[in-house]
Amino acid sequence: MHDKTRPGQEAIEIKGWWRAHQWLLLRRLSQAMILLLFLSGPWWGIWIFKGNLSASLLLDTVPMTDPYLLLQILLTQHLPEMLGGVGAVLVLGFYLLVGGRMYCSWVCPLNVVTDSAAWLRNRLDLKSSWRLSRSIRYWLLGLTLLLTLLTGTLVWESLNPVSLLHRGVLFGMGIGWLVILGIFLFDVLIMRHGWCGHLCPVGAFYSLLGRVTPLRISTTQRAACNDCLDCFRVCPEPQVITAALKDKQHQPLIDESQCTNCGRCIDVCSQDVFALSLKKTSQIDN
């Protein structure tokens, strides 16, 4: 019998454990490496990335700046230095190329927390969840920008758990763990995919950058789908799958800016329906 609390069991049996976890492992590796490249400086004096995800310097030469933060700074009517501006353009270009929400699933340290929460929720088979529109994050995004404009200070940064966690790991957390624990418990007990899937304005901002990327998950083998629903169980944004998988009129491509390109659907599908591909080639296949 299919165990709903352990999505991916069938894939493990057919493809083997490694192939059923390869994208997840790659992602964890990416998240760990990025953190390590920041930590190697303070820990061992080997400075690769200096600063944190808000703004950093790679090998003391290449600047990188969070474009969402830079936008907020511009809204306070402060013109940043060249260094910060160039950094923001670089990061902006990168995420336009690979899909904005790659940030969420491959870089953001909070992803590990909310993924763990989603995993635990699945295992405990918790069903009750608040229902909120997934577009509420865009409202919150607008709210943070509006408040920044009105107050002239980076209001959102006084709470932002994304920067709080990354900065905390690198520079000292204080009682910030409480905020992270709060988000974990919120995601487990109160709302399924509550933070990353509904509320986070940082993810909302990056999803807006996801419209032009050629890097997308395709569903060219969708005829092989056996309706096990495992992809829906692991996907942090399951609403993006439906059309590409089930609607025969729809192109076999998850061309949704809310998709984080995490690749977990590729892992858990025993029928290899999903694949990471370039938008153009999959359209030609179509």
Binding site: G41, S54, T65, L69, I73, T76, L154
Partner: peptide, 19 residues
Amino acid sequence: LAEEDFLGACIRCGLCVRD
């Protein structure tokens, strides 16, 4: 910058701390 402007301009990256 003056504290009010500083809170709008500081990106909280810690590069000054590191340098």
